[in-house]
């Protein structure tokens, strides 16, 4: 029963993440949306591996590694975002005037 709750909640969070990624214009929002998505994936991994039985150490290790990678990627993306802001004065990439120059 708890599994179903977890899966439903994770799916909802995942959906919110996708929505945010598509809709948000500001890069910070997009990055947050991606992080939200990753969190839901970690929950699903936990449920898929553990179930009702005793917690699976391998799954825990995977999720921990996943979190580390997500943090690193986010930090890097933020740095990139700041560079873009410095170059263009905006923290978004939606304008499409940059096909060629």
């Amino acid at each position: 029963m708890t599994e179903v709750v977890f899966v439903l909640a994770a799916s909802l969070v995942f959906g919110i993440g996708v929505w945010g990624l598509l809709i948000a214009e500001h890069l910070l929002r997009k990055l947050l949306a991606l992080n939200v998505m990753s969190s839901s994936v970690f929950v699903i991994m936990l449920v898929a591996a553990g179930g009702n039985a005793s917690p699976d150490p391998v799954a825990q290790a995977l999720i921990l590694t996943g979190i580390v990678i997500a943090v690193a990627a986010t930090a890097f993306a933020l740095a990139l975002m700041i560079s873009i802001y410095r170059e263009t004065g905006r923290a978004s990439i939606t304008d499409e005037d940059d096909d060629d120059r």
Binding site: L21, K30, L31, L34, M37, S38, V41, I44, M45, V47, A48, A49, G51, V58, A59, L62, G66, A73, F76, A77, L80
Partner: peptide, 20 residues
């Protein structure tokens, strides 16, 4: 990067399902 991270999330989700 954004598309790459999205792709990674999808991939990781699949890894979780398969491991489960």
């Amino acid at each position: 990067l954004l598309l790459g991270l999205l792709a990674s999330v999808l991939y990781l989700l699949a890894v979780g399902l398969i491991y489960g």
